[in-house]
């Protein structure tokens, strides 16, 4: 499998191995994530999707005992070069988690603004504009514009998740990583977020982990199939779902295991 076909990759992953205190969870993965596209990561439970996506913004190393080898290049620069500040990387590569996690004790507005406040150097007006833009992009503006001061935790599950997307968008990241963002949501909320993901690629690049193959087929341009810590194949989504190269991929997408 090679990553040659991808037009202008924003992320280039080379020989990434990730470990949990010696346990080899992600095995020698190389792939490229094309800019302004949606890339889906699929594979059975425990195959290392979360571990892999968390190595793309250096969140993997926050787990005690977790280590990693290999390179991840963001716009050509290796984020694992010694001396690179992981905090800086995470400002450029946002993340949305499986379970919506707005900050308790912060209003809706503050939740979206917090990334900007952390970075500093934004005027009040700039922050207001960015917050509104992010809330519009995450299709939440109309629902919350009259209650921006309410606690972020007062929203429904689907709204909270869109709030978290807005929070990630507000800092205008180059890439947004999403780890099963809809797995805790009802079908209607899920559909809204899927529409949203489709819109998001105009402004950023999306990498999404999903258990739901229909979802991968619906939202993504490229799909990578993982199995037991290894990348089995990656390609244009349509091809992966209609005409995969590998037998294991075919088995998985036709539901014969996983």
């Amino acid at each position: 499998m090679s990553a040659e076909f991808t037009p202008s990759p924003i992320l280039q992953v080379e020989n990434v191995n990730a470990y949990f205190s010696g346990f080899h969870a992600v095995k020698n993965i190389s792939l490229a994530v094309p800019e302004h596209q949606v890339t889906a990561l699929i594979g059975p439970s425990g195959c290392g999707k979360s571990t892999f996506i968390r190595s793309l913004n250096r969140l993997h190393e926050e787990t005690e005992g977790a280590t990693l080898t290999g390179e991840v290049r963001l716009a050509g620069k290796n984020i694992y070069t010694p001396g690179v500040d992981p905090v800086e990387i995470r400002r450029q590569i946002g993340m949305v988690f499986q379970k919506a996690n707005p900050f308790p004790g912060m209003s809706i507005y503050e939740n979206v603004a917090v990334g900007l406040t952390l970075q500093g150097g934004f005027s009040k007006v700039e922050i207001e504009n960015r917050v509104e833009k992010a809330l519009r992009s995450s299709a939440l503006w109309d629902e919350v514009k009259d209650k921006l001061k309410k606690p972020g935790t007062s929203l429904s599950g689907g709204q909270s998740q869109r709030l978290c997307i807005a929070r990630a968008l507000a800092v205008e990241p180059k890439v947004i990583l999403m780890d099963e963002p809809t797995s805790a949501l009802d079908p209607i909320s899920t559909a809204r977020i899927e529409e949203l993901i489709f819109e998001l690629k105009k402004q950023t690049t999306v990498v999404i982990v999903t258990h739901n193959m229909q979802q991968a087929a619906r939202v993504s341009d490229f799909t990578a199939f993982f199995l037991m810590g290894e990348l089995i194949e990656m390609g244009i989504t349509k091809t992966i779902f209609t005409n995969p190269k590998e037998r294991q991929t075919e088995h998985y997408i036709t539901g014969r295991f996983g």
């Binding site: 995470r90 946002g94 988690f97 900050f103 308790p104 990334g115 952390l118 990630a168």
Partner: peptide
């Protein structure tokens, strides 16, 4: 919950900022 701490880290909070945002601020 870990997710609350990762929310801060994932946004580019330093450890100190994470402790303030996710731990102290929510434990008033």
């Amino acid at each position: 919950p870990l997710t609350q701490k990762e929310a801060a880290l994932g946004l580019g909070a330093t450890k100190t900022e994470m402790i303030y945002l996710s731990v102290v601020k929510s434990s008033k």
